[in-house]
Amino acid sequence: MDAEITLRVDGEEHRLTVDTRTTILDALRERIGNTSPKKGCDHGQCGACTVLLDGRRVNSCLTFAVAHDGAEVTTSEGLAENGELHPMHRSFIEHDGYQCGYCTPGQIVSAVGMLEEVGNGWPSHATENVSAEGNAGLSDDEIRERMSGNLCRCAAYANIVPAIQYAAEHGEGVERGGNA
């Protein structure tokens, strides 16, 4: 069964017909031609397909496109503005927060979404006092915990953590999740 939907992807509107079985991930990759989010498992187990859906990070492989008519989708490609890399992009490059690069767009989108969550005061498993007011701060352990939905088989983790710390501290326009 087909359905017609509209998705706003990286600021651009797309009107498309999708099979109702089509995930946002496949709609992006196979219909719209945006292959920035990757398919690593198609089961919500790796995070390679992470996008911001109406501002929040989701596994787009677990999200049916038809259920999100009119939604706003941001991929890692969309974080770059006017051809300028996002501070998180630059920090990943500088800190070598990747090797093969396949998990990377998902990591980066996830990191940007994660900082926003921290900024909004959402606690995590690593948060000492979950009932405390305000945000949890951005210790390395907070980052490790909050980024654990994004697997990296190349195991760039120990570079991803400082990459995110650096972007959070120095990146203009990057939400400072921590004690700013």
């Binding site: 920035s36 992009h89 070598d96 396949y102 990377t104």
Partner: peptide
């Protein structure tokens, strides 16, 4: 830094 880094971080490197 990796020369293909700009492509990879944006998801623009073609797999």
């Amino acid at each position: 830094s990796r020369v293909e880094g700009g492509l990879k971080v944006r998801g623009a490197a073609t797999y």
